[in-house]
Design a protein around this nucleic acid. Structure first.
Length: 109
DNA sequence: CCTATGACCATAG
DNA sequence: CCTATGGCCATAG
């Protein structure tokens, strides 16, 4: 059976998977904010958690992690060049290193 | 168990 | 436009 304490709690695993799941559904050519992902994953106010999860994403992941940017419409990682290129290849337009959330934000509701 | 950390966010100056 | 501050949440050490 399971060995509680020596493994991540079900809740934490579910949360990470939740976050992955939500990100996987971001439509091509759109972007979502960390806060938006957190909320959709059932963790309002957990924007930083999304960032942490993404920072620990396995290399070669199939997840469209590049579609997640901050609430200012800017890229949060140290070297934004690759992420920006990926987004631009999908038709997302940058202006002054910034995306117009007004135009490209993923609309769910 | 407790503290520090982080791919955040909103507000204020 | 910028930096600074306080709040937020779970995880890492």
């Amino acid at each position: 059976m399971d060995t509680p304490g020596t493994q991540p709690t079900d809740a934490s695993v579910n949360l990470r998977q939740r976050i992955w799941q939500v990100i996987a559904e971001i439509p091509r050519g759109t972007v979502a904010t960390y806060g938006q992902i957190a909320e959709l994953a059932g963790l309002p106010g957990g924007a930083r958690q999304v960032g942490l999860t993404l920072s620990q994403l396995p290399a070669g992941t199939k997840l469209p992690w590049h579609r997640v940017i901050n609430a200012a419409g800017r890229i949060s990682i140290a070297d934004p060049s690759r992420q920006q290129a990926l987004l631009e290849s999908e038709g997302v337009v940058f202006q002054d290193d910034r995306v117009s959330l007004k135009r490209f934000r993923w609309r769910t509701g």
